[in-house]
Design a protein around this nucleic acid. Sequence first.
RNA 1: GGUCCGGUAGCUCAGCUGGAUAGAGCAACAGCCUUCUAAGCUGUGGGUCUCGGGUUCGAAUCCCGACCGGAUCACCA
Length: 604
Amino acid sequence: MSLEQQITTLAKAAVKDLYNIDASDAQIQLQKTRPEFEGNITMVVFPFVKMARKAPAQIATEIGEWMLNNQMANGQIVNKFNAVQGFLNLTISDAFWVEQLQDIDADDFYGRFKCPNGKCETDQMLMMVEYSSPNTNKPLHLGHVRNNLLGYSIAKIQEANGWKVIKTNIVNDRGIHICKSMLAWLKYGNGETPESSGKKGDHLIGDYYVRFDKEYKAQIAEMMAAGKDEETAKREAPLMLEAQEMLRKWEAGDPEVRALWQKMNGWVYAGFDETYKRMGVSFDKIYYESNTYLEGKSEVEKGLASGQFYRREDGSVWADLTKDGLDEKLLLRSDGTSVYMTQDIGTAKLRFRDYPIDKMVYVVGNEQEYHFKVLSILLDRLGFPFGKELVHFSYGMVELPNGKMKSREGTVVDADDLMDKMIADAKEISKDKVNTLQGITEQEADEIARKVGLGALKYFILKVDPRKNMLFNPAESIDFNGNTGPFIQYTYARIQSVLRKADKNLALNGVEQLPLDPKERALIQRLLEYPATVRAAGDDFSPALICNYAYALACDFNSFYHDLSILNEPDARKKALRLLLAKTVAKVLNRAMELLGIEMPERM
RNA sequence: GGUCCGGUAGCUCAGCUGGAUAGAGCAACAGCCUUCUAAGCUGUGGGUCUCGGGUUCGAAUCCCGACCGGAUCACCA
């Protein structure tokens, strides 16, 4: 039983006995005691003021005294108390803290849960998490980086919360945008390949996507100069017509178009694989739009037949969502080709056919909230029971100082470039560390720089509330000091350094009798908060909570480390206890960072 | 215009299921390495929590209304 649970039980018994109040767990408000007061944990007694009809300070005192006199059978937990107005500050006995520390050390599953929300089904509950979902017409940028890191981290966090998680990716490998790069490559590429150009495949294709946009805009300008209005020019520009023609050919299975598509997508995948691998993200199952859109089409046809959808005169198919307070939504174009929504319907169907999914989570930007609202309704109408239940994990955009990133306009922060930069910066900083990094090979130094550089990047992104938009200023480099990934990694590396030098066989006999230093106590109390943090991060889908926790734990440790010596402590039992404390902090830090996909270096 | 999200220190962000004097980091300034890794520690300065009402023992937090910023409402994805 956790400390909070034990205090809650005690407090409930106290108010029952003293005032005959049957309090619920929620009415027992506990919080950490503020540092300016004596004590470790504080009970807020205001909720009982009315019913007890006494002054807050008196109630607090009475409950405190009751607790001292009536502790549970399993030993003395509350040692002392003081009452300040309606706040009952409880001091917990040192023996209790030490026992708790030993329990954490012995628990291989500390901070992991067997089942979600305490509800265990016969089979493990299965959550599918979709993230990344790239288009194969351009390389990954900073927006994708946020998506990938969030998706991966959320999968890890949910696993720790007891879910079986399938990480999945839907690759948008077909459609008009793909045809645009293909067309531009055919027209202007002169047969350029990744090999001939030395470019990464995804970057090569991205260049042609940008090229298409440039030429297309030139055509529009030309047509407008010749007297056409903008709408007409956009619609009738030869390049756009050609791209649309190519899409029709693709859907018709034209061998030449398909062969080109295969070849160019192959280049992109090779590029993506490299980026994913470096970023440290992975997938258990990948779906391709080219394999799912037909399924979606046939579902739309079924919906048409059953009267859920309707066809307009021009042949296009629509869903009327006005009853749900939304608009009418296009599902098939007048030329019969499918849209984004169509493929998502097909993908959902296939996924639920492939896996016994209990919860489907889409990690997709908040700009697509409308899309997922509609998808949920459409799936429901088509008779899929999971339609209503799907979760759109809607995260905020990454913005640059002058606004949103736009691939077509080239105002993006490229994922590969950014990782290069971070690792190079980490390498540069480590050059000053001649003392701690002496004697290591160049290869080891590179590996440390990789972990630290990526750690800085990942933490930078994951520490902000995922629902909020965040700002990235390319002109300012990402920090390696302060509330950062490297700070956590550094704390861990420090501990490892101490542990390497320590005698491994120090006895812990009788450590329960040791009086603790306040810094030691604070550290143990912090360690005890970890499981609840994992729960909260799972409930809220928020890796940021893990970041905040890891930062607080590292701060507590560094303060402890600064004030108290571990290896030079003369008292053998104290030394053993501090080593245990350090070891446990390292274990929990490492475990927390695993949930973020951040690797820990043994030295740095 | 409808819907949704946000507004906290110069900057980037915590805190938001209501609790004690609103916190970090960066930037600025001042200290701490012959002793376990100074990517660290300690301190100083910096705030009308956008504004106005309301709810109550108590509001940055909940409710209502303004103002400002963003997203979205495509035969784009």
